[in-house]
Design a protein around this nucleic acid. Structure first.
Lengths: 213, 213
DNA sequence: CAATAGCCTGTTCAATCGATTAGCCTGCGC
DNA sequence: GCGCAGGCTAATCGATTGAACAGGCTATTG
């Protein structure tokens, strides 16, 4: 097969191109998560990035490749955030450490709802973009999380629930309030972007999982 | 303003039109939930329904109106399912009744992941379709659920968590495994459409919320 | 000081979108 | 048994989509 997918552009990039490229990726992240892959137009992305539409095809081979760049940058941010929280925790016991990790996950999901929106989006079509997401990004996180939960379950720190179910309970209970933020604002008097609300939600999730916030 | 939205077509429908209309709505439900509003094309919906594309504009004024019909039929099914479970429960205590309702919600979400997929989809754009969803369908369910949780909390049957947070924990933890079914199949050895898996997930959610399945 | 390569824009193309129109076929009411 | 309205299709519309192309500006390079 002549699959060429995502070869880097064979061009020696100059540093002056980086900020422009970053603005495009940021705009693409927002619009892909808001409008879905099909719903987001390259013209709209270009407009939000403050550039012309053909420039997207200059920096990226296709809309598909721009989508991959957006996804990569999102997961890079997530992994960096979680890693920073994990290191610097030498000597803290395993349960407390896990709780902090969960809280960090909830906070990140609140500040970056785009990630879960894109995952939800793509996990329906079940196409090549789903392959990219799972193989490249989701599986490593899933396996680390499951291993953590199973260690916690052996200590009795979390309820005895099959780890796959626990994983989807966490990835559902944590981000949904923020993924559905516009709905939440209409239904309740809460603003999901408010720090106090985020804190309260992290409390709630930890209370359910660990028995204490 | 000349807003005309969703007037019924001024035409005396014959019974022979109903099955065709239903097939179109069913196909629209599947494709809107899989591909999002923008991603689903009227031609594809027509093809899956086994009719020609202009027929959609015969039965519905616009793509928007077809979307509303699909959403209406989904929520009608949800409400019917939950109501059937609630009646026929005379004399059962409140906690057991709530548990059964939650289990029914999880089961419905597993068999009809389209509903949550569409809600997730629309809750990002924050446009007129979001208004339609919340005002017409989600708010009544939200208020009933919150009232139920607050009654349960007064009895100590569920953890003391602000009801809005509890609502989003439930609507996240319950359906996410099934909304992300294609992802789940790749990550785990579980098939989210398997009855045993659905049962196990309902057990897990009830265990976390109520302390026992 | 040329000249080359990276960065970016204006213009345009074929494909595809939702919607409209004109018209065919069928079966019910009179 | 005739007319007419409902159900449906074929053909086509203007608008918009992602992408390609040709060319201009600028900074680095030799």
């Amino acid at each position: 097969m002549a699959s060429s997918s995502t070869k880097p552009l064979d061009r020696v990039a100059r540093p002056s191109a980086k900020p422009t490229r970053d603005r495009i990726v940021r705009a693409a992240t927002d619009l892909f998560s808001e409008r879905s892959f099909d719903g987001a137009t390259t013209r709209e992305i270009a407009a939000q990035a403050g550039v012309t539409q053909p420039l997207l095809n200059y920096h990226f081979r296709s809309k598909e490749e721009l989508w991959q760049a957006a996804v990569d940058s999102l997961f890079e941010r997530l992994n960096k955030t979680l890693d920073e929280r994990t290191t610097g925790l030498r000597g803290v016991d395993e349960v407390t450490s896990a709780k902090l990790r969960v809280r960090e996950f909830v906070t990140f999901s609140a500040r970056n709802p785009q990630l879960h929106r894109i995952i939800m989006q793509e996990s329906k079509a079940d196409g090549p973009r789903m392959d990219y997401l799972v193989d490249r990004h989701v599986r490593p996180i899933y396996e680390r999380t499951v291993a953590l939960f199973e260690a916690l379950a052996r200590r009795g720190a979390v309820p005895d629930i099959p780890s796959a179910h626990l994983y989807y309970i966490l990835t559902g209970a944590g981000p949904t309030m923020f993924v559905l933020a516009p709905e939440c604002r209409r239904l309740t008097s809460l603003d999901p972007s408010d720090d106090a609300v985020i804190e309260a939600h992290a409390d709630a999730v930890c209370l359910l999982l660990f028995g204490s916030p």
